[in-house]
Design a protein around this nucleic acid. Structure first.
Lengths: 208, 208, 208, 208
DNA sequence: AATGAATGAGTCTTCATTCAT
DNA sequence: CATGAATGAAGACTCATTCAT
């Protein structure tokens, strides 16, 4: 399913270098922002020369694309979560929430590097939106729609409800970036809190 | 009630100029991002010279602060919403949601200008966080806590639940910036959707 | 002898304003240097508006010319010193030295404002040189030449010797500007020291 | 004897580039003055790009510091002159005068670049004063004091006398910068003239 | 005659990108 | 492939000067 497993020694070396540079870039971008980060800093953080960066990436912008691509590879929503699809609705939500929270936590550096720039650059809007928002939104819409029809979820405006949930993740990421303390220390409890908030709201009234 | 009504002719002229420049800056920042926006563009958008900008603001950074300050002035959460405090819980939430959605819509340009930069500049983190997140969060926490004690809201982890709700607003703003279509066209219906999602989740089970 | 004694009330007012502005300019130039001094600062120091400066002077450069002119007016070498011309040679030198040292002390602000800029701007070179160096040099040359012929001064290379003496004054001004402490506190004794040095020489009196 | 001989190829290349840029800067500063000189001009004069300048110097100000440092390196007062210390007093003075005059002539561009700015910038005052004035002054004071005690020099106010001599050099540099013609053409004769003036004095030999 | 807001040309400085070694 | 010095375009900011009030 993954497109190109690097097989040859050469390909593996190249992939490793790219990863090394992307990691450094993500770290520096996250810390100082895309524009305040200089290629010099990134080179130093990656422990290579500035010139080397340009042997692997076309431009500074391309580094950002690289981070997004890397981030997308880490997205394994499908496999892990698909298994929970058949679970009880509530359990599925908890699983999904946990999955997203973990994902945000792991990828925070990269998301923090990418998100602000994405919000600002129309050319990146759709790339990011498609890659990270729409795919999940579509999936969720299908799921919710199906469960509504099965009577497991109260009838709601599906697209908007899904946006609200999606938005919550994005917003929690932003609050995290802004350094919100309760969120920081309570992060691990969020899946349950969200499940209670969202799911009990979605579930049909007891005794209905 | 407003602290300093500019009274003299001179003060009014200065305030007008500042507003004129801030509006232009917000527009340009929103469109191209803080760093890609040039002072020349802002000057042109404001129909003044570059030099004039610096007669009213210390630096480009200061323009951003100016936008935040302006945004904060538009915050009138208290007055309008306080009246709804005694309403039925559900009605209050709808009122609040509507209020926030309107606010986001009106201030989108400015928020779009400010938010990405705020996420990226540690010095701005706390300023923005205190001004736009924490104040509302604190208010909501108090409200929710009180209503829990009155039995109008199910016992929940108050701080985290409030973060989830706050996050939703922030996240919806981000999705809006990213150009999400369903959100765009369904924006006016969001208050009800959110109320259903969030409130019915908070309300104690019927017959409980 | 002075060209235009301002007689009418109007002329006196104008002259007063010019003096007020020139004083301020000299102070600010002396403190921060011509280029680092802004017209705004000068205006503030003169307690007028920036615009007013331009009602009395054509440009910032013109202010410098104004200071030089003012400085030249203070030069009254002739009158006071001419009386000493017939004195004993040694007494004349002491009188002259004292006169120059006083002059430097009084006009330091203005000289400090003017000299560095004069050294740097070829257009000002000759103006300053003619006004403040050559006139005195010529006078001294004539005096020394005459006294040599009278046997009161040892035969020397007159032009170069006079340059050396002139240079001493200029150089002492520079050292003063640089903040040399012994010079500062011993300034009043300099005339005698210089007279001993220049007139008697360092070598012990023969047969003394 | 010089502290750090650049040994590696890299160090030599860097030192050469710095020298190349400093020379250009000194030329341009001397001609137009520090503030009227643009980095663009300096770059052109040094035959490098503007950016390259900043690879070797932190700022335009730093170029001035660089010139001063370079100038200080050329100061070899000690070695060459120390040998003359034991000479006849008159011969020592001639040697010193010749040394200083040569030094001024060689370093005129750099001095002309540095001196006016030094007079104007309090931060540079002491740096220059210590480096170029005080060191020599102290040396001279010691010498004169010793010779007075040996009876080779008439008892005088040592610090002030030394200032007068120091001032003469500085002043002659200034007159040279101002384009004084007799000085220009007679420069090579100045050491003898100065020696006669300072050491013998103007007064005719008693009993001569 | 005085004011001071508006102007915009001019400058230092940064930094992504290139390329000779 | 790696390097890092060189490049120069671009941009924030300053400030002498003007002019409407």
């Amino acid at each position: 399913m993954a497109s190109d497993q690097p097989t040859t020694r050469r390909e593996r070396r190249i992939a490793a270098r790219k990863a090394q540079i992307i990691d450094a870039a993500a770290r520096v971008f996250a810390e100082k922002g895309f524009h305040r980060a200089t290629t010099r800093e990134i080179a130093k953080a990656a422990d290579v020369s500035e010139g080397t960066i340009y042997n692997y990436f076309d431009s500074k912008d391309d580094l950002l694309i690289g981070i997004m691509t890397r981030l997308a590879e880490l997205e394994s929503l499908n496999e892990e979560l698909m298994e929970a699809l058949e679970d009880d609705v509530r359990d599925f939500f908890i699983a999904m929430f946990r999955h997203r929270m973990d994902h945000i936590q792991q990828g925070q550096k990269m998301l923090q590097a990418v998100l602000p720039e994405v919000m600002v650059s129309p050319e990146l809007h759709s790339r990011f939106y498609q890659q990270f928002v729409l795919r999940i939104a579509t999936l969720l819409e299908q799921y919710v729609q199906a469960r509504i029809e099965m009577g497991h979820i109260r009838p709601v405006d599906v697209p908007l409800t899904v946006r609200a949930i999606q938005g919550m993740f994005v917003g929690l990421l932003v609050l995290r970036i802004l350094g919100d303390e309760p969120l920081q220390s309570g992060w691990d409890n969020m899946p349950e809190v969200l499940a209670t908030l969202v799911f009990d709201g979605l579930s049909p009234r007891e005794g209905g």
